[in-house]
Design a protein around this nucleic acid. Structure first.
Lengths: 154, 154
DNA sequence: CGTATAAGTATTGAATTAAGACTCATGGTA
DNA sequence: TACCATGAGTCTTAATTCAATACTTATACG
């Protein structure tokens, strides 16, 4: 299957990955969440090829995940900021980070901790059920194909 | 930066992506969560090049995310099953799926729904704080560099 | 005028992927 | 026994993508 054919799969994960599922895009988003905003700062932080960076930023803007906003005129300069849609990726990113913390942290422990501003504590993210509010693990979930369409998977 | 150099970054997301961050690996894991287990079934489901599939499966096994277990002898045949470590990726995957459901579902709505077996309802995953149990969004979180080491990012 | 900065685009050689043919061990069948 | 099928790969080659670096454009600074 081709990369761009993923977007046409009837599967929300495939469609998500068609947009953000390459290795650089997720690293760009990590930086964006850490408040990196300018082309050159992304480049320096990631050591990414400029060509790839400009292509990925353009794709993220096209999808409304980042917004390109001018921060000065004369000379015109832009920065890339997360939109609401982009901010909504945070749970996914944080879940990946916490998985990495658990399984691949070096001897100093995780390099970055996360503080919940509301309660003031360092925390891990816990996936819970939107209906009963209890924590949910993989074994607690059944995937159900939506019936009315010819859908095939999640 | 090279792909394999990612693993050496002092960043849990980079290290996570070095293992599972390519487009095929995440699709393989999706299938694994949907109980696909055999080489040929992954291949048929994903239309992935066999070479790439065998390489990715080997990497996942090497990292203890999938386990290769024999399901028959004579001729010896194996299947690939999620380990505990692999199952722990579920929150990240489900967060990506729900993001895709929200932003890229077709007119029929999401192709797969998820039922929480404990309470019996269809649900979305909600990221909550391990300490105060309340829902957390991106703006509620501060990233803090761990102090004792020369760490640089999350 | 010469240099610097921000944000790219262009070029080229290296690495990765896609598609499909081939292999190997075993088992069933005519 | 000869022939075909199955599962799980490996091999080869051509297409695609990526890395590294040079070049471009607009403006400001000294």
């Amino acid at each position: 299957m081709r990369w761009d054919a993923l977007a046409k799969e009837d599967c929300s994960l495939a469609r998500t990955l068609a947009v953000i599922g390459d290795r650089w895009t997720l690293m760009i988003l990590r930086d964006a969440f850490l408040r990196v905003r300018r082309f050159e700062d992304f480049e320096a932080s990631l050591k990414i090829a400029r060509r790839v960076l400009s292509e990925r930023l353009a794709l993220l803007v096209e999808h409304g995940i980042l917004a390109k906003v001018p921060y000065q005129e004369r000379p015109l300069r832009h920065e890339y900021r997360l939109t609401e849609k982009g901010l909504e990726l945070y749970p996914a990113l944080l879940a990946l980070v916490h998985w990495g913390d658990k399984h691949y942290a070096g001897k100093n422990g995780p390099p970055v901790l996360h503080r919940h501003l509301e309660c003031g504590h360092e925390f891990r993210s816990v996936m819970t059920c939107s209906e009963c509010r209890k924590p949910v693990a993989a074994r607690d979930v059944a995937a159900i194909r939506a019936s009315r369409s010819r859908s095939r998977r999640a």
